[in-house]
Simulated assay, not measured.
Amino acid sequence: APDWHNLTPKTLFSQIRHELKAYWGYELNAENMDAVIEKHSLQKISLLRSFALKVGLQIMLREYDFDNKNKASFSGSDIMNIFPVVKHINPRASDAYNFYTTGQNKIQAGAVTEGHELIAEALNLLNNVYGAMHGEIAQCLRMVARLCYVTGEHRDAMAYQQKAVLMSERVNGIDHPYTITEYSHLALYCFANGQVSTALKLLYRARYLALLVTGENHPEMALLDSNIALILHAVGEYELSLRFAERALAVTNASHGPRSLKAAVARHLLARTLSCLGDFRTALQHEKETYSIYKQLLGEKHEKTRESSECLRHLTQQAVVLQKRLAEAYAR
């Protein structure tokens, strides 16, 4: 009988551990896959997706029960197709690439108009070389949209970004990391154009896909949650905004550290939301921590530190006013 007939989950896991140690030099200190998943807080559906992509497996679209120990999660009929995974390097349109990188350098140097012209020329060349649909064209469209947004042309930014989203969906797939990024950028431009409900729908869509691909604890999830919290805050949905802001802070603390600039930004958003809900004491605690991080990392004279100091003063005043009103109400 072939060797794979006698393969058990235990021997397969042993082979995986050996391969990891021999090829990557990584020691997997666990007895089985369930222990690895628990230790690293992995998501089984994300692992399945990643495995299928890497080995060229197409499986049936249905709800898989991974937690039932008495029943196999998969059957032979779940495997729909097998594709060869070909490793190759895509040919590059060198002239367009040179225009694109030069444009990026110009923008970083502060010459936005020149950079914009070069990237528009790169987009034109890419269309001539690749035709209507290509991954590099989608990236170029995203850059043009961002430039339009920076220069205040919000309507043009949204139009270019819509093209980038449609192209990325077609070329990369709907759950590709690039497509998720395109959704979040389009959400920002929709919000800038006053289309709040569309912006929220796009961010929820991006969050759902990111959750499927990476799980809850990825740094990108913190960014998406912060953006959702900001939009909900802007439309007065403070209770829901608070939930997303708290989640964003927890993930940021875990991935970047509690004393990072990203943590300071997350705390500032949380403080603003809590103050809108009237919880000035907790808001003050978060803003004090924000001020402390900015002061340590950026110095007292930095714009962010001064802004946080002003916010602290404002929150303290609001807390005093609220305390006085409560005292007057009790006195009556």
Rank of each mutant, 00 (worst) to 15 (best):
Ser197Thr: 15
Ser197Ile: 09
Thr198Leu: 11
Thr198Arg: 05
Leu202Glu: 07
Leu203Thr: 04
Ala206Arg: 00
Tyr208Lys: 10
Leu209Ser: 08
Val213His: 05
Thr214Asn: 12
Gly215Ile: 05
Glu216His: 11
Glu216Leu: 12
His218Gly: 04
Pro219Cys: 11
Ala222Asp: 10
Leu223His: 10
Leu223Lys: 13
Leu223Tyr: 06
Leu224Ala: 06
Ser226Tyr: 04
Asn227Trp: 01
Ala229Tyr: 03
Leu230Thr: 14
Leu230Glu: 14
Ile231His: 06
Ile231Cys: 09
Ala234Gly: 15
Ala234Thr: 10
Val235Asn: 12
Leu242Gly: 06
Arg243Gln: 14
Phe244Asp: 03
Ala245Pro: 03
Glu246Pro: 00
Leu249Cys: 04
Leu249Asp: 07
Leu249Thr: 11
Thr252Lys: 03
Thr252Leu: 02
Thr252Tyr: 01
Asn253Val: 03
Gly257Pro: 03
Gly257His: 02
Arg259Phe: 11
Lys262His: 12
Val265Asn: 08
Val265Asp: 14
Ala266Gly: 09
Arg267His: 10
His268Arg: 12
Leu269Asp: 11
Ala271Lys: 03
Thr273His: 01
Leu277Ile: 08
Gly278Gln: 08
Gly278Trp: 10
Asp279Tyr: 03
Asp279Ile: 04
Asp279Ser: 12
Phe280Met: 05
Thr282Ile: 08
Leu284Glu: 07
Gln285Thr: 14
Gln285Ile: 11
Glu287Met: 10
Lys288Asp: 15
Glu289Thr: 12
Ser292Tyr: 05
Ser292Thr: 13
